[in-house]
Simulated scan of single mutants.
Amino acid sequence: MHHTSTAERILRGFLLTLVLLFFLFPIFWIFLMSFQTNEDILRIPPSLFFSPTLENYIALISGRLSTVAGDLDIAFMRNLWNSVLLSSLSVGVALILGVPAAYAFARFKFRLGENIAFTLLSFRFAPPLLVLLPLSLYFSELGLSDTYLGLVWVYQLIALPLILWIVRGYFEDISPDIENAYRIDGHSWATTFRKIAIPLARPGIAAASLLAFIFCWNNFVFALVLASADKQPVTVGALAFVTASGIQYGQVAAAIVLSVTPTLMLALYAQRYLVEGLSLGAVKG
């Protein structure tokens, strides 16, 4: 029996290693590409051995992209900042609107409540192109075209339904008895929500915020249609690397590394926070 469990552990470890290699190898290869010139990248057969260069990162940070046809100005760092700003503001607004709404849907049963909640969720599944034409017309009428405010508003179609549904599930899992006991002591609904419900649902709020941030960060279509170059996020800004003289693979790889880093760091931070929140749970409340 002991031999079987050892063999199983070895097999499981081997299979996990294979899965990790399968998923992580493309990321590793892109990381290597970001330190190579186009000649090294396009070499056949590809090689793991090359002379590393920082030219790709220097080009991105300085905003000067060297191509066969000459130098090209790219605002990659501005695009990166736009992504951070748009995603952070969108998630912030979605939390302010979504967390109280999620609590209301979880605690108060009212007429058409489920229908309203499902309608809000359905916005998440609507094809972006379906809403873009009417939105672009409304935005030009309201003066919201090519503004951060307009983009943050549109990004609510991504962030708000996610936060609403995930956090609602967490509030439903929390026993109302804890809140009732706190309210019997003379505290209001608002104080109970702030002091009891939110701390207990913190893991859910953190998970929903992280997912919403990643989905907002990865969005391409909204910003492509509704914003000009100086407001566009990194997903749209990456189009600058496809030039008439060819694709700058090294710069594309460096751009991917730089654009993935913020979400990766946030995910690592949130993972630690999630574990802490889950381990404390109702004991803390």
Rank of each mutant, 00 (worst) to 15 (best):
A117T: 11
L133E: 03
F118L: 11
P127V: 07
L97E: 08
N115W: 13
A126Y: 12
A102L: 12
A126G: 11
P128I: 00
F123R: 01
F108L: 14
A94N: 04
L112W: 10
F110G: 10
F118E: 08
F123C: 07
P127I: 06
F105A: 10
R124P: 00
R111P: 00
L97V: 13
A117R: 14
F110E: 11
P127Q: 08
I116P: 03
P128K: 02
F125G: 04
R124Y: 14
F105D: 13
P127W: 04
E114D: 14
P128W: 03
L121V: 06
P128D: 07
L132C: 04
F125L: 14
L121S: 09
V131I: 13
T119W: 14
F123G: 02
V93S: 01
A126D: 12
V131S: 09
A94S: 10
A104T: 13
L120N: 07
L133M: 08
K109E: 09
K109P: 00
A106S: 14
L132D: 04
F118Q: 12
P128C: 02
P128F: 02
L95A: 03
F110H: 11
A126S: 15
L129H: 07
A104P: 02
A106V: 05
G98C: 06
V99K: 00
L97F: 11
A101V: 12
R107M: 10
E114M: 07
P100V: 10
A106P: 04
V99G: 01
A126R: 13
S122V: 09
A102E: 14
L129F: 11
V99Q: 01
N115Y: 13
